[in-house]
Design a binder for these strands. Structure first.
Lengths: 340, 340
DNA sequence: TGCCACAAGGAAAACGTTTTCCCTTGTTTT
DNA sequence: AAAACAAGGGAAAACGTTTTCCTTGTGGCA
C-alpha cells in the first residue's frame, strides 16, 4: 500500500501548537462566544494559519450527523438551461458554506433512486430535484431532517412539497396571447411526453389560450412523438408538419430543445419550404447567440440559485416560490415572413 | 431545534437484528472473504434489507481517512463542451462507485484555490481539473495520496502531471491542412488569451501550419481582444474583421464559443456582407443542431469520462493520455460561397 | 464577608465505521 | 498423537470532530 507521507494536520496539532485543548480550538473555529479570550483566539488563529489547518469534514459530519453536501439531481445536463440552473445553484450553495454534488438522472427512476439512496447515506444536508420523476425512493423520502426542493417540476408523488419555478400554465397562456397579438392564428404545438407538471401545465395553458381566442389548435397539429430526446421530438414532429398540406404560421415547442430540433428539419427541407415562426420555452443562454429567430419564454435561471438556497435554509410548510417569466421575442428571418 | 424522528439505522441495528457483531456486518458489507459462513452472510443480508441499511459515509471516511468524493473543477460550465465532459465524467465516476462533486471555477485562481482547499478538507479521493489555472494552492498540492488529473489543459505549474486531452498542436496543423485542401488560403484567427496550454498549442499549430503551406496569416488577422468571455471575443474580433478592407475566406476560432460570437457579428452585419467559412474547436454537441455552417475539430467528449477514471484508479508516473480528434466539416451556407 | 454570575477553558463522551488482535473450533499434516 | 493451519467471529481501538459537563478564577453586589 501507498504510505501517506504528507499527513494533513488535525485539530490536535493546532491545539498543541497553540497550547490549548482541542475543545478550545473547535470553539474558536466555530466562533462560539465567551469561550476564549482575545489572546487565546489570536494564538489559535495563528496556529491554524501556520499549519494550514482545515476542519476535516468526516469528523464533523460524524459528530453532527449531517454533512455539508447538497445534492442536486438534474434530469438532463445536456440541456443548457439545466446546466445554467445548476451553475447558478452551485454559486448560491457555496455562498451558504455548503458543497454541491451534481448528478444526472437522465430522467430515469432507477438512477434517481440510486442517487437518492447514496445521498441519504452521505447524510446530505438537502436534496434539490431539478426535474424530478416519480420513483419508489422518492415516495419513501419523508425524513423532515433532510429538506427537499423541487425545481421546475412539481413533486410527482402528489405531496405538497416545496417548489421553485415559473407559472407554467400562465406562461402557456401568455404564448397564446402573444401569438394572437401578432396575428399568428394557425399554430402547431410540439410537446414532450406529459410526465411532468411543467409540460402538462404548459400544454394546458397553450391549448386553453388558443381555444379561448377562437383559434383552437387542430388535433393533428398537436404532436408528441416518442423519441430519444427533445431535439429529436422536435425534429420528427417538424418532418411530419412539413409533409402536411397546410402550413402553420407558428410552431410552439414546450422546450427550446424541441424548437432546435424543429428548426433543423425546416432548414434541411431547403429554402423552398417556408419556415414558420417559432417559439420555445426556457430561453437557453445560447439562444441569443445561436438561435436568432427563436422567440422563447425566458425563465430567470440566474435567480434560481438564490431561491433554492432560500428554500433550503428557511423551510416553510407550504412553499411555492413562483419566479417571473417573460417572452423574449426574436424576429422572423428576413425575406421569409417580412418584406426586405 | 427540530427533533429527528426518523433515525436511519446504523450498523449496530443490523448487527443486533442479525445476531452478530458489528465487525461481522462490516465484513459482510465489504465482502471480506473467509470471515463469515454462508448462513451468517444470509442473515446479515436479510437484516440489511429489512432495515434499508446503508453505510454512513462519515464513519467510513473517518476511519479510512478518505472519502468517495471525486472533485471535478471545471473552468466554465456555460461551455456546452465542459458540461458534456462533466456529464461523461459523472457516469464513469459513478460506475467506479464514487461520487462526483462539481465546481465551476470561472477560470479564477482564487475560486480554484477555495475549491481545492475545501476538497482537501473533504478528503476527496481525487481531483479532476477540467481546465486548470495556475494558483498557489495548486502549486502546494503535492500529496501523492490524492491523485490529480488535468483535462484539456496541461498542469499550468509546469510539473509533469497526468493529462488527458487531444494533441492540440497537431489539431491546429490539421486545421491548416484542411484549409489548404479546400483552397482557403486567406485565413483569420481569433483566439482566447494564451493562458492555457490548449490555446497556446492550437494557435501555434495553426500559425505553423499556414506558414509552412506558404500562406502565413497576416498579423492584423490574428486577433485576441480582451472580453468577458469567448463569445464576446469572437464577436468583437469579427466586428473588426468586418470593418477591414480585405475579406478572409476562413475564420478560425480556438473554441466553438468564439466561432459562435463571430458568426453573430456577420449575421448582424446583414446579407450584403459576405460571410466567410468558419471553423472552431471542440465541436460542441449542439453544433449539429444549431450551427449547421460551423466546421469544428471534434474532441471525443464522450470518451473523457472513462479516461479520467482510468487515470485516477491506475495512476502511472508520467501519464499523458492523448485522445483522437477529427475535423467535422459542415458546408458553407448556400448562395454565399457556393452556387445554388 | 459571603454569594452569585460569568468568563475561560479543560476532560471526556459520542458519532459510525473499519480493522487489528485475539479466541475457539474443527480439519489436515507430520 | 501432536502440530499446524483454516474458518468463523467477537472485543476493542482508532479515526477527527463537537458538545456536555465540570472546574477555576474574578469582579460585582448586598
Amino acid at each position: 500500500m501507498v504510505r501517506r507521507t504528507v499527513q494533513s494536520s488535525s485539530i490536535k496539532d493546532v491545539a498543541a501548537l497553540a497550547g490549548v485543548s482541542i475543545a478550545t480550538v473547535s470553539r474558536v473555529v466555530n466562533g462560539v462566544a465567551n469561550k476564549a479570550s482575545a489572546d487565546t483566539i489570536e494564538r489559535v488563529r495563528k496556529a491554524i494559519a501556520t499549519l494550514d489547518y482545515r476542519t476535516t469534514s468526516a469528523g464533523r459530519d460524524l459528530r453532527q450527523r449531517t454533512s455539508r453536501l447538497v445534492a442536486v439531481l438534474a434530469s438532463n445536463l445536456a440541456n443548457p438551461v439545466m446546466a445554467a440552473i445548476a451553475a447558478s445553484a452551485e454559486v448560491a450553495i457555496r455562498g451558504a458554506g455548503l458543497v454541491m454534488v451534481l448528478c444526472d438522472t437522465h430522467d430515469q427512476p432507477e438512477l434517481q433512486d440510486e442517487f437518492l439512496r447514496e445521498m441519504l447515506a452521505q447524510q446530505a444536508r438537502a436534496i434539490v430535484l431539478l426535474g424530478a420523476v416519480d420513483s419508489p425512493a422518492l415516495r419513501r423520502l419523508q425524513d423532515p431532517a433532510t429538506p427537499v426542493v423541487f425545481v421546475n417540476r412539481q413533486d410527482p408523488t402528489g405531496r405538497e412539497s416545496t417548489f421553485i419555478g415559473i407559472d407554467n400554465r400562465r406562461a402557456g397562456e401568455d404564448v397564446a396571447a402573444w401569438a394572437m397579438a401578432r396575428g399568428l392564428r394557425k399554430a402547431a404545438l410540439i410537446h414532450a411526453p406529459i410526465t411532468s407538471s411543467a409540460t402538462r401545465d404548459r400544454v394546458s395553458g397553450i391549448l386553453t389560450g388558443f381555444a379561448a381566442a377562437g383559434a383552437p389548435l387542430p388535433k393533428s397539429w398537436v404532436l408528441s412523438p416518442d423519441a430519444v430526446d427533445h431535439l429529436n421530438i422536435g425534429f420528427e414532429s417538424a418532418r411530419r408538419l412539413i409533409g402536411d398540406r397546410h402550413v402553420p404560421d407558428l410552431v410552439i415547442g414546450t422546450s427550446d430543445l424541441i424548437a432546435f430540433g424543429a428548426a433543423r428539419a425546416w432548414r434541411e427541407a431547403g429554402p423552398e419550404v417556408p419556415t414558420p415562426r417559432m417559439i420555445g420555452f426556457d430561453d437557453s443562454p445560447i439562444n441569443e447567440w445561436l438561435a436568432p429567430e427563436l422567440s422563447s419564454v425566458r425563465i430567470p435561471y440566474d435567480a434560481y440559485g438564490a431561491a433554492i438556497v432560500e428554500a433550503l435554509l428557511f423551510p416553510k410548510p407550504t412553499n411555492q416560490i413562483v419566479l417571473d417569466h417573460r417572452i423574449v421575442e426574436r424576429p422572423a428571418r428576413l425575406g421569409i415572413h417580412s418584406a426586405s
